[in-house]
Design a protein around this nucleic acid. Sequence first.
DNA 1: AAGCGCATGTAGCATTTGCTACATATTGGG
DNA 2: CCCAATATGTAGCAAATGCTACATGCGCTT
Lengths: 178, 178
Amino acid sequence: MSRESLLPLLAGHVLAHGLGQASLRPLAQAAGTSDRMLLYHFGTKELLIIDLLSHVAGVYAAGLDAVLAEGERPATRTALVARIIAQNAATAMQPFMLLWWEIVAGAARGLPGFLPAAEAMMGELLVWLEGHMPAGDPDPAGGARYLLTVIEGAMMLTAVGHRQTAREGLLAGGLLEA
Amino acid sequence: MSRESLLPLLAGHVLAHGLGQASLRPLAQAAGTSDRMLLYHFGTKELLIIDLLSHVAGVYAAGLDAVLAEGERPATRTALVARIIAQNAATAMQPFMLLWWEIVAGAARGLPGFLPAAEAMMGELLVWLEGHMPAGDPDPAGGARYLLTVIEGAMMLTAVGHRQTAREGLLAGGLLEA
DNA sequence: AAGCGCATGTAGCATTTGCTACATATTGGG
DNA sequence: CCCAATATGTAGCAAATGCTACATGCGCTT
């Protein structure tokens, strides 16, 4: 079992149970090894988490590329927003969303490895958005950044029980069709 | 030392060091008591955290009311956005911001007490915003929700190292003057 | 003064946590 | 075949964590 073959299993556990419950022994059990072996491969829990976050960021990027392949380019900004909102609300995305907020919290606090991972994931989403802006959009670069800001705000409000508020906000901003 | 007199001291520690480091003995020391006494007053760490988050939400609301008293009503939405962005970027708000993302993460995961606190704080900010929309704004209610969404998105992007992205997004959305 | 309830200190316990020491398998190159 | 490097198991340790048991002070009523 190499580092690389371990990471997906570790990521699975963290996605299922959160970073808060990510202590060595549970992680090891989820990956079918021992804490002893995790330290052997990664050196330190801190280094393991850093590798793990980096790996999660990579998986996220790959997932975006997969979604990028399918589906046609939306005709309007509102269609694009609706598509992403729906995508993020899908139950398959839920575990990732839960993990995401922990990553944001860690990044804000400056925990090692968190900020690079968070920055990378938002960067990926940004380029994805920019590549999916409606054809003929007057300002694809700025528009993508604008939509990213709005969408992430809506995601956050949704996470804290203000889904309705977010929805009304998007409506009032002309970013969602009634 | 009653529950109520303890809470501000506990909140101080949590604001300074985060919820992750909030174990009973450090908390007790910050409040000038013992873990024994914390459990005596709150019954359980979980109950303590719930009380603590509720208290933090109350402090946040009071802080908003204080800011509400001073300052005149902005003339435009962009002025309002600029004011809040500046407010949140102030170093005095930094500890609260760090704590906020932990609360969001906890709320998303359904930890007891987190969601009510987060919901309350966003609710407070929403009414504050609604009360500070420019005079003559065509849609104060929807506009406040729209601005809330956008502002929180910008805050999140800022927290993960995408301050510039957020800024450009706000500019492209016409929510910030160049 | 006696006794009763609230408050608080001391000590500990069982569990978890990250990590280490030491021994042992496994395996590929000479 | 031998040996050295790689890989893995076993056992444990020191610290932290949430919580409990027991004793004791402190104040108030009767």
